[in-house]
């Protein structure tokens, strides 16, 4: 029962994050969508580890890896935003359509 609740919450977070990542024009808001999806993944991992893996230590390791992925995404994402802004004065996705057909 608890596991179902936790997983449903994680699913909702992934869904909201997907909506945000697809719909937001601003780069920073887009990254918040990605963070929300990772948040859902983290919640699902915690739920599975605690309630259905019997406390296998590898489950906690996976949660730590997800946190590292979050940090990498944030750092590289902001660096890319700064680089694009320097080059194009752009802060929305519509401004970088050079490769668009």
């Amino acid at each position: 029962m608890t596991l179902t609740i936790v997983l449903l919450g994680a699913t909702a977070l992934v869904g909201i994050g997907l909506y945000g990542a697809l719909s937001q024009q601003s780069f920073v808001m887009l990254m918040m969508g990605l963070e929300l999806m990772l948040n859902g993944a983290l919640l699902a991992i915690i739920g599975f580890w605690s309630l259905s893996l019997g406390g296998m230590p590898e489950g906690q390791l996976m949660a730590i890896i997800v946190m590292a992925v979050m940090a990498v995404e944030l750092a590289i994402g902001f660096a890319l935003i700064v680089a694009v802004y320097r080059k194009r004065q752009a802060d929305v996705t519509e401004s970088i359509d050079t490769l668009r057909q």
Partner: peptide, 15 residues
Amino acid sequence: MVHQHRVSIGAGVLA
């Protein structure tokens, strides 16, 4: 500030 709003809502709900 949104684009392709309907598609995004659809994708989120579907997921």
